[in-house]
């Protein structure tokens, strides 16, 4: 069991373990950049949550060396995409940020939520139908064909991603039952 502290998780890791943790952070940053051009500071903070699970903003500033503004911005983004939750620490004005469950699927981070995808699937279908219906008026307008191609590409991408998310959920449920 991981020992828990009341506030954050800035336990004194042994210096050799800290070095291993830094390797993990560097790996997250490198893979995030290579794989999808992800912001390195965002990836670094995400990595600390994967390792330590519960941190305050101050913890993250101490661990990462990033400014308060940078850490605060990334924390907001992580809360927005439901990777971490934010709770007030009783008796203080501080917040504790927690990765309650590790994102069992990468979907929470790498892929949009299902709700957003379904919304866009419909909308893209309507936009495409409209563009095709009005091709004769629009085809001479600058970038009409590029816009139409972009809609088609996005439709394909949205469908692919929603299929993958559905499959990941099934797999996560299957593994949870084991």
């Amino acid at each position: 069991m991981i020992a828990e502290t009341a506030i954050g998780n800035l336990k004194g890791f042994d210096p050799e373990i800290r070095l291993i943790e830094k390797d993990i952070v560097a790996f997250f940053k490198q893979k995030g950049a290579e794989f999808g051009g992800k912001d390195p500071m965002f990836m670094a903070i995400l990595a600390y949550f994967y390792v330590r699970e519960r941190l305050t903003q101050q913890d993250l500033q101490n661990l990462s060396g990033f400014s308060a503004g940078t850490v605060s911005k990334v924390l907001r983004q992580l809360v927005e995409i439901n990777i971490i939750t934010k709770r007030m620490i009783p008796g203080t004005h501080k917040h504790l940020y927690t990765m309650d469950q590790p994102p069992v699927t990468f979907s929470q981070f790498y892929l949009p939520t299902e709700r957003i995808l379904l919304k866009y699937e419909d909308e893209l279908k309507q936009i495409k139908a409209h563009l095709i219906a009005h091709t004769s008026e629009m085809r001479r307008i600058r970038s009409f064909s590029e816009v139409l191609a972009a809609v088609t590409l996005l439709q394909g991408s949205v469908h692919l991603v929603s299929t993958l998310i559905a499959e990941m959920k099934k797999e996560a449920e299957k593994q949870a039952k084991k």
């Binding site: 336990k11 042994d14 590790p102 990468f106 499959e167």
Partner: peptide, 28 residues
């Protein structure tokens, strides 16, 4: 050493995350 358990837990979490994604992708 202090912190080693957290790193082991991290490894175990990442294996679970990767396993779910890879198996789902394989089915597709």
């Amino acid at each position: 050493k202090k912190g080693a358990e957290e790193i082991r837990h991290f490894i175990s979490k990442m294996r679970a995350v990767i396993s779910v994604t890879v198996n789902a992708m394989h089915r597709l």
